[in-house]
Amino acid sequence: AVSDRLIGRKGVVMEAISPQNSALVKVDGETWRATSGTVLDVGEEVSVKAIEGVKLVVEKLE
């Protein structure tokens, strides 16, 4: 799938994300809905860990 190429890519949080709420991230110039197990604020850099349906699963870039 096209989205599989995004695993391992870096992105930027466009809307705050919490474990209860998905929000938008920008990866390679494209906007995607994403979820995370932690709270992520706007502007934080993230890494794509997986794809669940049409959502990216991201975590904060260390």
Rank of each mutant, 00 (worst) to 15 (best):
L40R: 00
V12W: 08
I7P: 01
R9S: 06
S36H: 04
D4A: 13
W32V: 00
V27N: 01
E15L: 10
E62C: 13
L24F: 09
S3D: 08
V54P: 09
I51Y: 06
I17S: 15
A34N: 04
W32G: 00
V39D: 11
S3N: 10
N21H: 12
V39H: 13
T38L: 07
E62K: 11
V58I: 05
D28L: 07
V25Q: 00
T38Q: 14
R9N: 05
P19L: 10
K60A: 07
V2L: 13
V39S: 12
E30C: 13
L56F: 03
V48R: 01
L56D: 00
K26P: 02
E52G: 04
T35M: 10
G11Y: 03
V42I: 09
M14Y: 06
V13D: 01
G37P: 10
E62R: 11
T31I: 14
S36R: 00
E62N: 12
K26M: 14
A16Y: 14
V12P: 02
K55T: 15
S3V: 09
E62L: 12
K49V: 15
I7M: 06
A1Q: 11
V57F: 08
L40H: 03
E59N: 05
M14F: 06
L24P: 03
V57R: 07
R9Y: 07
L40C: 05
E15D: 06
S36A: 09
K26T: 08
G29P: 02
D4P: 09
E59C: 08
S18Y: 10
N21W: 10
S18R: 08
M14L: 13
G53L: 03
P19W: 11
V27E: 01
I51A: 03
L40T: 02
G43K: 02
K26R: 12
A16I: 15
E59A: 09
V57W: 08
K49H: 06
A34K: 00
V13K: 00
I7T: 04
V48C: 00
K49Q: 07
D4K: 13
S36P: 02
G11V: 03
T31R: 06
T38I: 08
V12M: 07
T35E: 09
E45W: 15
V46L: 01
R5W: 10
K49F: 07
A34F: 07
D41F: 15
E44Q: 11
L56P: 00
L56H: 02
S22N: 10
A50Y: 07
P19R: 08
N21C: 13
A50L: 06
L61I: 12
K55F: 15
A1T: 11
V42E: 06
G43Q: 02
V25M: 03
V46N: 01
A23N: 05
S47E: 14
S3T: 11
P19F: 11
S18P: 08
E45A: 10
E44R: 04
A16R: 13
V2I: 13
K60H: 06
L56I: 08
E15R: 09
A16P: 10
E44W: 09
V25C: 05
I51S: 02
E52L: 11
T31E: 09
I17F: 13
V54W: 14
D28P: 01
R9Q: 08
A23W: 15
Q20I: 09
L61K: 05
K26Q: 10
A16K: 13
G37V: 13
